[in-house]
Amino acid sequence: MFDRVSNNQLPVMFNNRGLIKLKLNQQMSALEDFNEAIKINNNRAEFFENRGHLKTQLGNESNVEEAQKDINRAKLLKQQQRVQ
């Protein structure tokens, strides 16, 4: 599906598709897309924010802990971007 997309655009497309899947209540599929976006580019705060918020919605204890890690990573990335 994304075979004609540049490497810079690919993680953004996975992230955006994940957001669409969230609106369609397809949480697990959205999580896979957020994971893929982060796997390709782990320097974008919004990818971690989106995954963190989704994990919070999923609600079990391990997801909540993982969600907090993602949200903390997003905050750190935002701080680093301000410094540069």
Score class of each variant (00 low, 15 high):
2 F>V: 05
2 F>P: 08
2 F>Y: 14
3 D>A: 10
3 D>G: 04
4 R>E: 08
4 R>L: 07
5 V>K: 08
6 S>I: 00
6 S>L: 06
6 S>K: 02
7 N>T: 00
8 N>F: 11
8 N>Q: 10
8 N>Y: 09
9 Q>A: 11
9 Q>Y: 05
10 L>A: 01
12 V>P: 00
14 F>T: 05
14 F>V: 05
16 N>Y: 15
16 N>V: 09
16 N>L: 13
17 R>S: 00
17 R>K: 08
17 R>A: 01
17 R>W: 02
17 R>L: 05
18 G>N: 11
18 G>A: 14
19 L>C: 15
19 L>P: 05
20 I>M: 09
22 L>C: 14
22 L>I: 15
24 L>G: 03
24 L>S: 11
24 L>E: 12
24 L>T: 06
25 N>L: 04
25 N>V: 02
27 Q>M: 09
27 Q>T: 06
28 M>G: 01
28 M>A: 03
29 S>L: 13
29 S>E: 14
29 S>I: 02
29 S>D: 07
30 A>W: 03
31 L>D: 02
31 L>G: 02
31 L>F: 13
31 L>M: 14
32 E>A: 07
32 E>C: 02
32 E>S: 04
33 D>R: 11
33 D>I: 05
33 D>Q: 05
34 F>I: 15
34 F>V: 15
34 F>P: 10
36 E>L: 07
36 E>T: 04
36 E>V: 02
36 E>K: 15
37 A>L: 12
38 I>R: 11
38 I>T: 08
39 K>S: 10
39 K>H: 14
40 I>T: 00
40 I>E: 01
42 N>L: 12
42 N>H: 13
43 N>I: 13
43 N>P: 10
44 R>Y: 05
44 R>P: 02
45 A>T: 03
46 E>K: 08
46 E>L: 08
47 F>W: 12
49 E>D: 06
51 R>M: 13
53 H>Y: 07
54 L>H: 03
57 Q>L: 15
57 Q>H: 13
58 L>D: 06
58 L>V: 14
58 L>Y: 01
58 L>F: 04
59 G>M: 03
59 G>Q: 04
59 G>Y: 00
60 N>K: 10
60 N>D: 15
60 N>I: 03
60 N>S: 08
60 N>Q: 09
60 N>L: 10
61 E>F: 05
61 E>K: 05
62 S>R: 14
62 S>D: 15
63 N>Y: 07
63 N>R: 04
63 N>T: 03
64 V>S: 07
65 E>S: 13
66 E>R: 12
66 E>G: 13
66 E>N: 14
66 E>H: 12
67 A>Q: 02
69 K>T: 07
69 K>H: 07
69 K>G: 04
70 D>L: 09
70 D>G: 03
70 D>Q: 06
70 D>W: 06
71 I>N: 10
71 I>Y: 11
71 I>T: 10
72 N>Y: 11
73 R>P: 03
73 R>E: 10
73 R>A: 11
74 A>E: 01
75 K>A: 04
76 L>S: 09
77 L>E: 04
78 K>R: 13
79 Q>K: 15
79 Q>R: 14
79 Q>I: 11
79 Q>C: 12
79 Q>P: 07
80 Q>W: 06
80 Q>F: 14
81 Q>M: 12
81 Q>V: 06
81 Q>N: 06
82 R>M: 09
83 V>C: 11
83 V>L: 15
83 V>Q: 14
83 V>M: 12
83 V>Y: 15
